[in-house]
Amino acid sequence: MNDYRTIFADGLWRNNVVFAQMLALCPLMAVTTTATNGLGMGLATTGVLLTANIVIASLRHFIVEEVRIPVYVLLIASLVTLADMAINAWLHDLYKVLGLFIPLIVVNCSVLGRAEAFASRQPVLAAAADGLAMGLGYTLALTVIGGCREVLGSATLFAQASLLLGHGFAFLETTLIQDYQGFLLMLLPPGGFLVLGFLLAGKRVLEQRGQRVQGAAPVKGQLGSPIH
């Protein structure tokens, strides 16, 4: 079970929070108007997922079944509050971009989902790896969807990246078409659903092709099934 390659393959692709588990779509639709916003939100969520998994895995022997959900909620909510305060105080430029969305991490069901499905029954190190993998998978999804919407909606990519990552990353900021009139639909929530739909279809096609190449190989069991 504690095969780290499986954990990372699950988090990044096979059991990706967005593309496989279809969780955490609410913050996704809200922030992914640009790739930069997606990346920032993804990294903040990764931080919370990682620490939540570590804390919950290290407390797993003390937590009893009856009150586990309130305990998880309490821990996750406090971690998000701590992250919110720390980013506001010490990474204020990032806070100005993401400030509104950081409290949204609390309602990101994938954090509670990983606590319940993985961290509560795995050693600390494996739980940390799972939190990191799931978080990076989520970051990947947010950045890709944000990038698609940004390119289609405003013909730029990674606009304002230097605000998020520091001035060294200003080279990421690209404008594809000057004087682009904008494609409003892509920046509004329907654009998020459209892009997500096409990406999901694309992932299906890739997976089916992969299965055909491998022959009818049995699908490997996935770690932690999604919660519904």
Partner: peptide, 8 residues
């Protein structure tokens, strides 16, 4: 469970 929840 009471002590656990209270402690957390």
């Amino acid at each position: 469970p009471m002590a656990l929840l209270g402690g957390v």
